[in-house]
Design a protein around this nucleic acid. Structure first.
Length: 290
DNA sequence: GTTTAACCCTGCACGC
DNA sequence: TGCGTGCAGGGTTAAA
């Protein structure tokens, strides 16, 4: 079975972007009637930057959502008074559209009810995710957001720039690809998939790549991320990541290495191997990646 | 500067 | 069968 047990969400750039697009279509223009921060203790953990439930709710109630943006793995919901609701999914967070009639799923921590009907629920068993409201002009003061690097989908993400950044660092590729301050959006799944697509080993030094290898890595990053979005993200098992409407993504079937330990490489039939890289399980093909 | 490990948390797999 | 233990993950932080 997949090593990603326990219903991991593993929410990375493609999953966040799918939810962002769903939100853009569905909640922009809606006005918030009220916010229910659920009574369980972990709900406070989710809104950990706010001292009290009421303080969080009051900043959202009555506001209209005007725009939905994304920075790395963070979703930003802009409000009509200039505030921003920031959402991070951690590894098991979900935003789900619901209605009053629908029963509350376990680990539902926050329910945002709309004037127009329906609601938006934040569900997160492991509470590594969080939500907070901040003034739009103070977004830059939020440390975690401020240091987030460019992501592979941005227009300004060029091969030349990427090449220079790689050369400037002397780090193994896998941890570097997962470093949100270097490039944002990639986590454990997609960094492995990108490295396989580029034919590069996890432990290649960033400043040792030929220009051809840099190009392969650059292209792999964009293609893997765009493909995963097209398939609406990776859902590894029943409890894992789902979109705004509770529907799983289809990219798991497309994964080339992640979760495939011992299975034949789809390209060369060599069994996929794993090892621990900075505390994360990494999957790679010893034949195709060098 | 880079790398490692610990922390937060829950639910599952595993072994006794 | 039932329980305890270990592990998985993202991101930050501290220490090596």
């Amino acid at each position: 079975m997949s090593p990603a047990r326990g219903g991991e969400g593993l929410v990375e750039l493609p999953e966040v972007e799918v939810v962002r697009r769903d939100l853009e279509k569905d909640v922009v223009g809606r006005r918030i009637r009220g916010v229910d921060v659920r009574p369980q203790r972990n709900a406070m953990r989710v809104i950990r930057r706010h001292a009290r439930r009421k303080e969080f709710s009051d900043r959202l109630s009555g506001r209209k959502i005007t725009r939905v943006d994304r920075k790395g793995k963070y979703v930003l919901l802009f409000l009509d008074d200039g505030d921003v609701l920031v959402v991070h999914f951690g590894m098991s967070g979900q935003l789900i559209r619901g209605t009053k009639r629908q029963a509350m799923a376990p680990h539902t921590h926050v329910v945002i009810e709309f004037v127009q009907g329906g609601d938006l629920r934040f569900v997160d068993p492991r509470t590594f995710g969080e939500m907070f409201v901040t003034a739009g002009d103070e977004l830059g003061k939020v440390k975690e957001l401020d240091h987030i690097a460019i992501d592979p989908l941005e227009d300004t993400f060029t091969w030349q720039q990427f090449s220079a950044e790689l050369a400037r660092r002397a780090s193994k590729l896998k941890p570097l690809l997962m470093d949100q301050k270097f490039i944002s959006g990639l986590g454990n799944i997609y960094s492995d998939e990108v490295l396989f697509a580029a034919g590069l080993r996890w432990d290649r030094m960033s400043d040792s790549l030929s220009s051809q290898e840099v190009r392969r890595l650059y292209r792999a990053m964009r293609e893997v991320v765009q493909d995963a979005i097209r398939y609406r993200g990776t859902t590894l098992d029943d409890e894992a990541y789902v979109d705004l409407y509770g529907k799983p993504g289809e990219y798991a079937a497309e994964l080339k290495v992640y979760g495939r330990k011992g299975l034949p490489c789809r390209r060369c039939r060599t069994p996929i191997e794993t090892l621990k890289v900075s505390g994360r399980t990494s999957f790679f093909c010893p034949q195709c990646q060098s």
